[in-house]
């Protein structure tokens, strides 16, 4: 579904991603782990062109992304839902409006259709009673569940998660991971950058360990966590587990 081909990204002279080659299949859940500054968030942001790759190519459902015009890029982003570390809900809109704005303004759905689907999604993330609340009145965990529902409202083919639980109080991490696990269970294609090793072990089909802009090692979670091949992977896992 997503093919990453010799992807490089530099900020000025600082090379953040060095020759990344990967493929994500439909229905696959890929978890990217690694120390901070290893380039994992940048890699994720290159997938929907929030960052423009310096060289190389990202191919999504057979379409090469670099060099596309603005309209095409927007169409493509509709199919890639993204969830941010800092939720980024729209504070001037109610929860329901947050879910509806893009389907109505971008996809041209009627208000009724958008409302119906938004209510279903809120049920799915367990927040039906918060439809008319403003984001500021919700807890962090609730906000992140709304953010996931908002991304799902565009009916995406793949979901990108950029450290979705890093900004949460520990007691709220579980409710967000539960929603993500439910998504994986129904076959959503997911790329997740996270420090939640428990989630990686249980939900991931494949775990990628990145460091210094390289993919150091990848494999099934049991292989990578129980029998890491590289010294750097061993070091990293020793520190966090």
């Amino acid at each position: 579904m997503i093919k990453i081909d010799h992807l490089k990204k530099s900020f000025g002279t600082n090379e953040v991603l060095t020759d990344i080659n990967q493929e994500v299949k439909k229905g696959e859940v890929v978890v990217i782990i690694g120390p901070s500054g290893s380039g994992k968030s940048t890699l994720l942001r290159c997938l929907n062109l929030l960052e423009t790759p310096t060289s190389g190519e990202v191919i999504f459902e057979g379409t090469a992304l670099t060099g596309l015009n603005e309209t095409k890029i927007n169409q493509l982003r509709e199919k890639m839902g993204m969830v941010f570390q800092s939720f980024n809900l729209f504070p001037h809109m109610t929860v329901l409006e947050n879910l509806k704005v893009s389907p109505v303004k971008v996809k041209g759905l009627s208000d009724q259709e958008a409302t119906a689907s938004a209510i279903k999604l809120l049920e799915q993330v367990g927040l039906s009673d918060k439809a008319d609340a403003y984001p500021a009145s919700l807890s962090g965990g609730q906000q992140q569940r709304v953010a996931i529902a908002r991304a799902l409202a565009m009916n995406p083919a793949v979901m990108l998660f950029d450290e979705p639980t890093s900004a949460l109080d520990p007691e709220m991490v579980g409710e967000v991971l539960k929603v993500m696990q439910d998504l994986a269970d129904v076959g959503m294609t997911m790329v997740v950058v996270t420090h939640e090793m428990g989630f990686a072990k249980e939900v991931a089909d494949r775990v990628i360990f990145m460091d210094g802009g390289y993919i150091v090692e990848e494999g099934k979670p049991e292989e990578l966590f129980n029998n890491p091949q590289h010294e750097r992977t061993q070091d990293f896992l020793a520190k966090i587990l």
Binding site: N48, L50, E70, T71, N74, Q75, L76, R77, E78, M80, G81, M82, F84, S86, N88, L89, F90, V101, S102, K105, V106, K107, A147, R150, A151, M154
Partner: peptide, 12 residues
């Protein structure tokens, strides 16, 4: 983050 969130939802 607001404009990134908006853009990631496909908004022009």
């Amino acid at each position: 983050g607001q404009s990134e969130a908006a853009r990631s939802l496909g908004m022009s």
